[in-house]
């Protein structure tokens, strides 16, 4: 009797679990192309555009769309351009992984499948020479987006990237233009060594040294809002004086602001503390619009139209004037931002 009872319990639970799983699956819309994020080398293929006779076959290798809001927006943008039901004459296949070896395996598969173009946002900068040479031999054209790699430039047609140094420079210039009577800055950094952190930190530190600004605290919160909250909390508890928060992404700026709110320190346009963030998340731009924050720097995730232009040029037999294409990126000021900007640039 007891034995059966146990079995029934086990069965019921496994059934419940399975149900739970499907329930989660059910609520996740019908985006089957994005439904294989952690599965590494899994790929999904979009149906070719029905109208045109010969679709351009494109293999897209990207990082996991769950990685960040930036990546989600980036994936959405690419899906809209190359994904199922696009009207641009592309037949796109997508592969997602945060691991280099899985990405390389996916690239090999795409080459075997005979894609015309391979679009790549590499997880890691090293290790791509072999597979890119294979691509070259097979006549597959490679276009890098979002991230560069350590490989001979002859192995790829173009690289479409953000200039993180410029993003930082823009923000630091803006901060200087505010002409505050004194600059006491809490500098919250991203994951140390990442391109975004280096670019965004570098510009601020240079500017601070040149103008004699005080950096009250410089600490990495690893893109994490909770850590940023604790860092600013610690500065407040220690009674430090500061009037600028320079956070290297929006999440960390949000965490910092949560700590300010708790201590009743006013922030935003014309208030005690200037708040700066990066990435232009929609909610962050809304904070700007409400003048709770002061500045947000863009890190442009909308690379699809640049890639589209490059492919069109290559298809027409033109040569590209520049191999490295740096995207336009904006910096928004709370005093000038409009609802239109929020809608257009929020991710």
């Amino acid at each position: 009797m007891k034995k059966y009872g146990k079995k029934i319990v086990t069965l019921a639970l496994s059934a419940a679990m399975a149900l739970g799983m499907t329930a989660c699956g059910g609520s996740s819309d019908k985006k089957e192309t994005t439904a294989a994020p952690s599965g590494g080398g899994e790929t999904t293929t979009a149906a070719p555009a029905a109208s045109s006779g010969e679709a351009i076959k494109v293999g897209i290798i990207n990082n996991d769309p769950n990685e960040s809001g930036y990546r989600t927006a980036n994936d959405k943008d690419l899906q809209a351009m190359f994904g199922p039901g696009n009207a641009n004459g592309y037949e796109g296949s997508f592969a997602y992984s945060l691991k280099n070896d899985e990405q390389i395996a996916a690239a090999q598969k795409f080459i075997q499948d005979g894609v015309d173009y391979l679009l790549l946002s590499a997880a890691d900068t090293a290790g791509w020479d072999g597979v890119l040479k294979d691509a070259q031999t097979a006549g597959v054209k490679v276009i890098l987006f979002d991230r560069t790699i350590d490989a001979d430039p002859s192995l790829y047609e173009a690289s479409i990237v953000s200039d993180m140094d410029k993003e930082g420079q823009k923000a630091a210039d803006w901060l200087e233009s505010q002409k505050l009577s004194e600059y006491n800055i809490i500098h919250i950094q991203g994951v140390m060594g990442s391109a975004a952190q280096k670019g965004r930190s570098g510009a601020l530190v240079d500017k601070a040294n040149a103008n004699g600004w005080t950096i009250v605290e410089e600490q990495t919160a690893e893109w994490n809002a909770e850590k940023a909250q604790q860092i600013v909390q610690s500065a407040i508890d220690a009674g430090k004086k500061f009037n600028v928060i320079y956070a290297e992404n929006d999440d960390m700026a949000k965490g910092a602001v949560a700590a300010l709110d708790k201590a009743n320190i006013s922030h935003g346009v014309g208030k005690d503390v200037v708040v700066m963030g990066f990435d232009c998340n929609k909610w962050a731009l809304e904070e700007l619009l409400a003048q709770n924050w002061n500045y947000d720097g863009q890190c442009n995730p909308f690379q699809a139209k640049y890639i589209d232009e490059v492919i069109k040029k290559l298809e027409a037999g033109e040569t590209l004037s520049e191999k490295t294409i740096i995207m336009d990126e904006k910096g928004f000021d709370a005093t000038t931002i409009t609802q239109q900007d929020v809608d257009d640039y929020g991710i």
Binding site: C24, S28, T34, P37, S38, P65, T72
Partner: peptide
């Protein structure tokens, strides 16, 4: 391994933001 992806999946990879103040009581005051 799978949990964070499942979490993202539940909200279709979107990042909901709640503006209602009463929700902040649990992690605040």
């Amino acid at each position: 391994t799978a949990g964070r992806s499942i979490g993202a999946w539940i909200n279709n990879n979107e990042l909901p933001v709640i503006s209602d103040e009463s929700f902040t009581y649990f992690g605040g005051y």
